[in-house]
Nucleic acid binder design. Structure first.
Lengths: 348, 348
DNA sequence: TCAATTTGCTAACACGTGTTTATGTAATAA
DNA sequence: TTATTACATAAACACGTGTTAGCAAATTGA
């Protein structure tokens, strides 16, 4: 099936190719009867201007890339669909499409070159990267080459560059959790930290410490542990923590995210600790699975729709050279109280 | 920032542009020293061949479109991420990217034209459409114009056309459910049907009827009801069904999918019916939320990874003109027994 | 040494579109 | 009637790449 071009339309309508072009692009100086004649031929022959030609004249793709660098299985995470759907819908609301790409990691040169190629060959007008470690050199490189990069949960050092757009979890969610537990009377609080190359994990860690210090709570190293970001790693970390506490358990554990909190659930159950009667647990993310867990998980919820709309909107504004686009935005979380924390006597 | 082209590279390397091209495309008749000289200039200047030029020479996009026509909020459905991730990963395993697009419905001409434009302007090499009603005329039109369309859960009448590729739930999942309930002793079985323009709903309905007839079970119309495919619509339907049964409840209800089953849960709870003690419920889909519901939902699980890999693979094979690509594939489901069905005395 | 072949490269064309400039024609004004 | 303007359309160019045909130089064979 031969592809039909504007040349064919021109011949069929007995006009020149440029007249066809001006009809399609709504130029003023083409009389109604000519316009109708040409439009009729276009419809009859199902003619659509080819992107291949348009790109060459400087038109943009009206497409942004969405790169997800996720270790592990994301097909079943409830956050996954939220990230995708909100990015796609935010882009669509501005007339943009989304080219999606999943990468297992960004430690690997092959993957990095793949991403760079997609940016550089003009397949997308800008890209959003989720799951990059802080201060990724290849991201700086892309920006230096003039590309626009949107980043979710990402920290960068040095000066702001207008083509680097970020959205991050608000800095004080960790502190919020400690405040809440303090109000419930908890004084011995354990923390499971996430992956420290992820900005959110760093911030949460600092927030915990800030909160503990604010309330003059003792920070015991045996109650602190690195636990990654998956349910399995959280389970392993919690087992070690409980083991080494030797009955001097914290009365509450702050997990680095909801998945890790579910790992803590499992470890506690193996140790015969009932939640929240024997020990309280708090997550962070607002994962909807926490509604169905037993007990339902108290957590800090984030509005991912809000976050991705903010990011996508600012990225597209940057493509269109809108002035004064805000580069770095922090979105606050809110405490979602469910059933995994217990009120206790603060003096105990 | 001016875009750098193969012409610039040619000048910098003191060769002709075509030599640059043959270096990039791995032609044989270029000696190693020339190749290295050119490659060096390419690296130093971060040159990447532009898609805009390549497309013009007949290269394909190496991209497939993924169109999701979903009524309602899909951001929180656990199936959503599975559909996206499996499509993207299946495509990636063949070297293809995925352009994603979410549409609220396909009843609307504007949306249909949007999809047609994306196909026709050469932005994608083929497209997958999820959520289309059976026998959509615009899909036939696309196929007649030479486009390759992959369809999930879609029935079409008439002859097979090689550019129409489908994957569907296996025909007998409805029958499987009835067999299972029969084995548990159920004789009075109610059915909540889904959207009959969706192929899977049609097939399930027929499967139920076939199963009932096979076991000589009475099909009472007051036990059958149309209930859509969302939790809310399932809830409404279940309320009507329970209301009009006036104590002559079925002992088990087959929901058109898992979301609808959760609606049934809610309606039953309002009517003071405990699941599974007073009434059994079966879903279809294998939604992971069913693991956390109370009680965990017995359902027919489908391997969506399998389904999308099959679809994507065959679509890409068709793009590459592989002969004898299978057009229509059915993937069987498997009964996932959890806690929402009770063994009862068949004679009761 | 001369003809025949291989090697290494270039010039030229094709692809489909948007836009700018030029051209021809009809209507208007002088 | 002639000069001027407005209008409708066409011709020509630019965009970046891949590929084909062809040319000159270097190499081989006799």
């Amino acid at each position: 099936m031969k592809r039909i071009t504007s040349n064919d339309i021109a011949k069929l309508a007995n006009v020149s190719r440029s007249t066809v072009s001006r009809v399609i692009n709504g130029y003023a100086d083409v009389p109604p009867e000519t316009r109708e004649k040409v439009m009729k031929v276009i419809k009859e022959n199902h003619y659509y201007p080819q992107l291949s030609g348009q790109l060459l004249t400087g038109k943009l793709m009206k497409t942004i890339g969405f790169f997800w660098a996720s270790g592990g299985n994301i097909a079943n995470s409830p956050l996954t669909s939220s990230f995708f759907v909100n990015t796609i819908e935010a882009a669509a609301s501005r007339g943009y499409l989304v080219l999606t790409c999943i990468l297992n990691d960004l430690d690997n040169d092959e993957n990095i070159n793949y991403v760079k190629k997609i940016f550089m060959e003009g397949r997308i007008d800008a890209g959003i990267i989720v799951g990059a470690d802080n201060n990724e050199p290849f991201i700086d490189e892309l920006i230096e080459l003039g590309k626009i990069v949107g980043l979710f949960d990402y920290y960068h050092e040095g000066e702001n560059i207008s083509n680097r757009i970020t959205v991050n979890f608000d800095r004080n969610s960790g502190e919020q959790v400690i405040d809440y537990l303090y109000r419930l009377g908890h004084r011995k609080i354990g923390v499971i930290d996430g992956n420290m190359s992820r900005y959110s994990s760093m911030q949460r860690h600092e927030g915990y410490l800030r909160g503990m210090m604010k309330h003059n709570l003792r920070i015991q190293s045996k109650w602190l542990i690195y636990g990654g970001i998956t349910e399995t790693s959280g389970y392993e970390a919690a087992k070690i923590l409980l083991e080494r506490c030797d009955k001097d358990y914290p009365t509450a554990i702050c997990a680095s995210n909801d998945a890790v909190a579910f790992g803590v659930y499992k470890a506690c159950s193996e140790y015969g600790l009932k939640i929240p009667d024997d020990i309280s647990v708090v997550g962070i993310d607002g994962d909807l699975n926490g509604l169905y867990s037993n007990p339902p998980l108290t957590t800090i919820s984030f509005d991912f729709k809000d976050m991705f709309y903010s990011l996508v909107t600012r990225v597209i504004d940057t493509i269109n050279e809108k002035p004064d686009v805000e580069r770095d935005v922090f979105i606050p979380g809110s405490l979602t109280e469910r059933k995994s924390c217990k009120y206790i006597d603060g003096a105990m």
